[in-house]
């Protein structure tokens, strides 16, 4: 269920980014949260916060306090993320493409050796090497990591999605 939501989240992020939206939201789940935090850590998103069905005020986002999580409101909680646009490139979205790799039907895991090849831009069948500005987010035993973080920590894992400009 969680992986399915990650796939939906990827599609939604790409659609929202290409539509030049300022912020968007998706269901607040464990997998979604870990992916959103990783994307934010690597600079693809401007902020990630938990919120209700109403969006938080973007002007005061740095001091935004979500309501406490209770069993009563947990099902209505959403993750609100801010999307980034590149002013130097004429307002092109920073997150231009995000494609899911693992699907609920077919989990795809990659070992460290192949990750190293991919990160150098070399193909590792069936995966194409990373292009300029691209990245792969994967779930490992050390948490959800970017491909370069995973290589740094010498760990492979489950490929969640491929992110690119």
């Amino acid at each position: 269920m969680g992986i399915a939501n990650v796939v939906n989240m990827c599609s939604h992020l790409q659609n929202a980014s290409r539509a030049h939206l300022g912020m968007t939201s998706f269901p607040h789940t464990k997998y979604n949260l870990s992916l959103a935090i990783t994307l934010h850590r690597r600079g693809w998103l401007s902020f990630v916060t938990r919120g209700g069905t109403k969006p938080p005020d973007p002007a005061t986002i740095s001091t935004f306090e979500p309501e406490p999580l209770t069993t009563a409101n947990v099902s209505r909680q959403r993750l609100w993320v801010g999307l980034k646009y590149n002013a130097a490139a004429g307002g092109k979205p920073v997150l231009g493409a995000i494609t899911p790799i693992t699907t609920p039907k077919r989990p795809i895991t990659v070992k460290l050796k192949d990750l190293e090849r991919l990160a150098r831009g070399l193909d590792s069948h069936p995966h194409r090497g990373l292009n300029l500005g691209e990245s792969i987010i994967l779930t490992t035993s050390l948490g959800t990591l970017d491909i370069r973080e995973a290589i740094e920590r010498k760990v492979g894992g489950l490929l969640l999605c491929r992110v690119g400009p």
Binding site: R42, G43, Y85, N86, A88, A89, V94, L132, G133, P165
Partner: peptide
Amino acid sequence: QRDPEELAAGMGR
């Protein structure tokens, strides 16, 4: 072709 400096600046890296 994209400018790598520009991409890096967009991601804040």
